[in-house]
């Protein structure tokens, strides 16, 4: 009988659990999102996130088992996000998973959320083979990784300041668009002219593959406030919000695409996985496919439900570890705010 892995994810503002089998079939996936609670405060509030994970975790795991019509005794292994993320949030998932491991005797894997995100590409397209490049782009991360095999990940470059998703949130706030900024900016950009404003493409001195988005955000701010920054109030009536949104989005997409394809060339790789919340952006998807076809690079962008935080990717990666025969981790996993893959 095929072995089943229960995945648990609580690194940021979604409490998630999923069951995936050794052949990467998803039997269930439950995500309890806190987005509405945080939206009121304009961003993720760490203490609030940890409180809500503590309330939700038991119900979410119960539902994941129920949806798969399984009981705990049917599970072979538990996989839990160990890093990176908000420490208070991670601790809830890790502590619950370890309690569950002690009371069931099930082995446990601590999973790096970043490798989980990248793994979602393999769940989308099982024909993928190593080595490949992965662009992880979300509200918390923007980085390029070389992926040579399970657990064999090398960071190629990363953002030196804001994550791309963070820039979307901040610009959305400037434009009085709703939180989270990704969907609202994309929506506003639909009717805008991406060439209306010339925003910077975030070059980093001596590090051509690194990303930078804080200058872009400041440039949008100054455009709205006037060059001297003296106008204290932003009067959006003076500007076309769709034009600003479209021009900003184009600048982010340009920066992501140019650096990613430069890195592919430098590493001589022919396959690209793009994952994380910002991979849901349709303009980015469109431009990636376009450039991929031109450069003969295979581009895999998992669907939205795999791109945003979820436990399928955690359970799926756990199932891949299990199939590979990796030894389980000992109890006492240390939840970490930073990825082991960061340099």
């Amino acid at each position: 009988m095929t072995k089943l892995v229960l995945g648990i994810e609580s690194s940021c503002d979604e409490t998630a659990a999923a069951v995936v089998d050794e052949d990467q079939n998803v039997l269930s996936s439950v995500v309890a999102t806190q987005v509405e609670a945080h939206a009121e405060f304009g961003g993720v509030v760490p203490d609030l996130a940890a409180r809500m994970h503590t309330e939700a975790i038991g119900g979410v795991v119960t539902k994941a088992l129920k949806d798969a019509e399984l009981e705990l005794k049917d599970i072979s292994t538990i996989a839990v996000t160990q890093m990176p993320g908000l420490i208070g949030s991670l601790l809830v998932g890790v502590s619950f998973a370890e309690g569950l491991s002690l009371s069931t005797g099930l082995p446990l894997y601590g999973i790096d959320h970043i490798e989980g995100h990248i793994w979602s590409g393999f769940m989308q397209d099982p024909s993928l083979t190593w080595p490949l490049m992965a662009l992880v782009v979300s509200g918390g991360h923007t980085a390029l990784y070389r992926y040579d095999g399970l657990g064999q990940i090398t960071m190629i470059s990363r953002t030196v300041d804001d994550a791309a998703g963070e820039a979307f949130d901040k610009v959305a706030a400037l434009l009085k668009l709703s939180y989270p900024g990704g969907p609202s900016v994309q929506k506003a950009a639909e009717t805008g002219n991406p060439k209306a404003f010339k925003f910077p493409r975030g070059q980093v001195k001596k590090k051509p593959l690194h990303f930078s988005f804080s200058g872009l955000k400041t440039s949008v701010l100054y455009t709205l406030k006037g060059q001297d920054g003296l106008r204290s109030d932003i009067n959006l009536e003076n500007y076309s919000v769709p034009d600003v949104a479209a021009s900003f989005q184009e600048a982010v997409v340009d920066a992501l695409i140019s650096k990613t394809f430069k890195a592919l060339e430098a590493e001589k790789l022919k396959t690209l996985i793009v994952c994380g919340g910002v991979a849901a952006n349709s303009r980015l998807r469109e431009r990636l496919q376009e450039r991929g076809e031109k450069r003969r690079i295979k581009v895999v962008v998992p669907p939205l439900k795999l791109c945003t935080d979820n436990a399928m990717m955690i359970a799926g990666l756990g199932a891949a570890y299990l199939k590979e025969g990796r030894a389980p981790d000992s109890i006492g996993l240390d939840a970490k705010a930073r990825s082991s893959l960061s340099r």
């Binding site: 038991g58 119960t62 601790l91 502590s95 370890e98 309690g99 569950l100 002690l102």
Partner: peptide
């Protein structure tokens, strides 16, 4: 959270 995991298991 650990207590919940134990009780659940």
């Amino acid at each position: 959270a650990a207590a919940k995991g134990l009780a659940f298991g």
